[in-house]
Design a binder for these strands. Structure first.
Lengths: 171, 171
DNA sequence: CCCAAACCTTTGACATTTCAAATATCGTTC
DNA sequence: GAACGATATTTGAAATGTCAAAGGTTTGGG
C-alpha cells in the first residue's frame, strides 16, 4: 500500500463516518426513548399529584371512556398494549376504587366486560382535560408545523417497525 | 393589520386546525408513545431470546461499556434515567450473573462503583452489535433523510419539554 | 351426546418501576 | 472532636411488566 492510497482511504472513512460515528437509526431510537421517558415521567408525576392515579390506569380508562358500553378484557389488552395478565389486576384495583365495573355477560361466561362507572366517567373527564393541557404546555416551544410533521414521520417509522417484527405480525 | 394580512392568517388557521378535531400535541404524544412501546417490546423480546438479558440491564451495561473504569451508582442512575433505588437491584442481579463488579473505593465509603467484568464486556459487545442491527432492520423502510430530520425535531421537542417541567429543573 | 380444540381470563413467579423513608458516610463548623 | 447538614446508597411497599401455565367455557366434529 502506497502512502497516497492510504491517505485517500482514510479521508473517505472519515467523511462517511463523520455522522459522529453512530448509526442514524440507533441515535434516533435513543433520542425517542429518552424523550418519551421524560414526558412519561412528567405526566406520571402530575397524574399522581393531582388525581392520585397512575399512567396505566389513565391509559385503560381512556379506552373505556370512548367505549361507554364497556370492553372485554382481551380487547382492553390489545388497545392499551398491556398484557392480558396485567389487565386483570389493573381492572381489579380500579374496581376497588369504584371507577370501573366488571360484568359477565349472559351469552358467554368466559368473558368479563369492564365499564366505567359514573364516578369513573366524571373523574376521567377531568383527567383528560388536564392531560391535554400538560402536553400543550410541554410542547409549547415547538412549531405546530413541526409537530404535524413529526406526527406523520413517526407514523412512517411505526409502519416500518410493524413490518419488520420478528414474532407475530401486527395490525 | 390590513385586510389581506387577516385573510392569510385565517386560512392558515383553518388548514392547521383541520387536523381531525384532536389537539396536535396530544396526537403526537400518543403516536410517540405507542411507537416507542412497539420498538421496546421488540428489542426486549430479542434481548431475552438471544441473550437472556432485559432492556434495563442492557441500558445499564451500555453506560458501563463506555466508561471502562466504572461508574458510581448515582451516576449510572442519572445517565440511564433509572431511579436510584432501582440501580441497586439491577446491579445486584448483574453481579450475580458475573457481568458486573461492585467496588467501594478507599477514599469514600459511601460510594459504590460498578464496573463491567471481562465477561460483561464480551457479552455486551455482542449485544450492542445485534441491537444496532435490529434497529436498522426495523427502520429499514424509512428514508435516511427522514431519520435525520426526526432526530433533530425530536431534539426540539425534548428541549421544549425540559423547559416546561413542573418539578425540578433539568440539565 | 361427548370429547377435543379453541377461546378468554386468571394465576403465579419473577423483574422492574416509583416514591418515600431509612442508613451510612463525609465534610465542616463550632 | 462531636454534631449537623449534605451526599450516596439501600430498603420497603405498592403497582406494573413479562411470560408461561392453569382455569373455566364454548364450540364443533364424530
Amino acid at each position: 500500500m502506497t502512502e497516497s492510497e492510504s491517505a485517500t482511504v482514510d479521508l473517505e472513512i472519515i467523511v462517511q463516518g463523520a455522522q459522529e460515528g453512530k448509526k442514524l437509526e440507533l441515535r434516533l431510537w435513543l433520542r425517542m426513548l429518552s424523550t418519551t421517558k421524560l414526558i412519561s415521567q412528567e405526566i406520571r408525576r402530575r397524574l399522581r399529584n393531582e388525581f392520585g392515579a397512575t399512567l396505566p390506569q389513565f391509559d385503560l380508562m381512556a379506552q373505556l371512556y370512548r367505549e361507554r358500553d364497556g370492553l372485554r378484557l382481551g380487547e382492553l389488552s390489545k388497545r392499551t398494549m398491556v398484557t392480558n395478565g396485567n389487565v386483570t389486576g389493573l381492572v381489579e384495583r380500579l374496581e376497588t376504587d369504584g371507577l370501573v365495573l366488571r360484568v359477565t355477560p349472559d351469552g358467554d361466561r368466559r368473558v368479563t366486560v369492564a365499564k366505567l362507572t359514573d364516578r369513573g366517567v366524571t373523574l376521567f373527564g377531568a383527567m383528560a382535560a388536564a392531560h391535554e393541557g400538560w402536553l400543550r404546555d410541554m410542547m409549547a416551544d415547538v412549531d405546530p408545523a413541526i409537530v404535524t410533521e413529526l406526527w406523520q414521520d413517526i407514523g412512517a417509522v411505526k409502519t416500518s417497525v410493524s413490518n419488520h417484527l420478528s414474532g407475530s405480525d401486527f395490525d
